[in-house]
Computed example of a mutant assay.
Amino acid sequence: MRDGVADLLVRDAKLVAVCDGAGRELPGGWVAITAGVITGVGAAADPAPEAATTLDASGCLVTPGLINTHHHMYQNLTRSYRPAINGPLFSWLTVLYPLWARIDEEAAYLSAWVGLAELALGGCTTTTDHLYIAPRGGGDLWSAEIAAARELGMRFHPTRGSMTVSVKDGGLAPDSVVQDDDEVLADSERLVKLHHDPSFCSMVQVALAPCALFSVSPALMRRTAELAEKLDVRLHTHLAEDPDEDTYCLEQYGRRPVELFEEVGWLTSRAWVAHCLYPSPAEVTRLGAAGVGVAHCPSSNMLIGGGGFAPVRELRAAGAPVGLGCDGSACTDSAS
């Protein structure tokens, strides 16, 4: 608190749930907030600090904000697109890629604004986003998303996603949304230098996020890991999401996805991955020992061909941090 005065004091809540070692619940308590960070809590009988603004939260439940660990906000634009519903992952992507190829800065801004507002209405205060398409002539989609987040006041961890393997290379995406490795890496560095704020609890932190092992080359994965180390930013990708991913990696590289993930330098606590439905028990142990985070997305996994569930209990027991993600709105039809 600045000179003992908080920016905001929330008081008289029906119940203030406090995350501390004792797991306290404080009926009628108060929460002091300064610069967007909780700086004090107390029960109704505890003396509260002075504050520039006081919010009466009588009858309300006050909790820390939710954190969404995986999303594709541009997919708001194709929500409930019937031809794509209830297919397996690879066919779902194949149907939608030609539509996503037409996205530009305005579309990225609007889809992010809608997605961020929807998350905020559900109690989410911090979110990431995985935007991995780069339509030719579409402009700077990532800066457009960040502009929406700043306008709404949401703490935002966007990721500079990428694809380099198109249909002509045996991938799923059309040529018009992929880039070459040098383009991806140069723009990744540009966005980090332009927007990334490494300070604690900052409002914008950028991560690097090749889409998946079946949509970029191992060389790009390796070079991205090296760039993230140089820039001191985090890494994100999809991993072990679908049996077709296993088949693709075994046929193309003679490796299971987690094996390839480790080989290209991503088995580190700098990385967190989306889904992780199909690791073997030994792979769970390796992911946990390295501190790789997992974004578990149960709603989208149920809709896209009955994908299944991540082995959450086993991952956590092995040491992997696990969070929840709503995934793209196109596959959950919501962002709750």
Rank of each mutant, 00 (worst) to 15 (best):
residue 9 L to Y: 10
residue 146 I to S: 02
residue 169 D to V: 00
residue 213 L to K: 00
residue 163 M to T: 14
residue 255 R to C: 03
residue 228 A to Y: 07
residue 166 S to K: 10
residue 199 S to V: 07
residue 17 A to W: 14
residue 333 D to S: 10
residue 24 R to V: 12
residue 186 A to K: 06
residue 308 G to K: 09
residue 212 A to S: 15
residue 160 R to K: 15
residue 199 S to G: 10
residue 86 N to P: 00
residue 205 Q to C: 02
residue 85 I to V: 08
residue 168 K to F: 04
residue 192 V to H: 02
residue 96 L to T: 10
residue 70 H to F: 07
residue 306 G to Y: 04
residue 239 L to D: 09
residue 212 A to F: 13
residue 285 T to R: 15
residue 180 D to E: 11
residue 223 R to C: 08
residue 335 A to W: 03
residue 129 D to H: 00
residue 216 V to C: 11
residue 75 Q to P: 04
residue 238 H to A: 08
residue 190 R to S: 03
residue 274 A to Q: 07
residue 110 L to H: 01
residue 278 Y to T: 12
residue 46 D to E: 13
residue 236 H to W: 12
residue 65 G to K: 07
residue 214 F to E: 01
residue 66 L to D: 09
residue 316 R to E: 14
residue 90 F to V: 14
residue 321 P to I: 02
residue 323 G to C: 14
residue 51 A to P: 09
residue 215 S to E: 02
residue 39 T to F: 09
residue 309 F to V: 12
residue 267 L to A: 06
residue 80 S to L: 09
residue 252 Q to H: 07
residue 235 L to M: 04
residue 247 T to V: 15
residue 241 E to D: 14
residue 164 T to N: 06
residue 92 W to P: 04
residue 63 T to F: 14
residue 304 I to N: 01
residue 324 L to Y: 15
residue 265 G to H: 11
residue 225 A to L: 03
residue 9 L to K: 04
residue 11 R to F: 07
residue 221 M to F: 15
residue 166 S to T: 05
residue 15 L to N: 05
residue 241 E to S: 10
residue 257 P to C: 06
residue 1 M to W: 00
residue 112 A to H: 00
residue 195 H to S: 01
residue 132 Y to I: 06
residue 165 V to C: 04
residue 287 L to C: 12
residue 318 A to Q: 02
residue 288 G to W: 03
residue 105 E to I: 00
residue 326 C to A: 11
residue 65 G to R: 07
residue 311 P to M: 06
residue 230 K to V: 00
residue 294 V to M: 06
residue 223 R to P: 02
residue 188 S to P: 00
residue 211 C to Q: 03
residue 189 E to D: 08
residue 161 G to F: 03
residue 263 E to T: 01
residue 55 L to F: 15
residue 321 P to E: 05
residue 73 M to W: 08
residue 115 G to N: 01
residue 180 D to S: 14
residue 10 V to A: 06
residue 301 N to V: 05
residue 16 V to A: 12
residue 230 K to P: 00
residue 196 H to R: 01
residue 157 H to T: 11
residue 49 P to Y: 11
residue 16 V to Y: 09
residue 167 V to S: 13
residue 244 D to S: 15
residue 249 C to M: 03
residue 146 I to N: 03
residue 194 L to W: 11
residue 317 A to Y: 01
residue 301 N to G: 07
residue 331 C to Q: 10
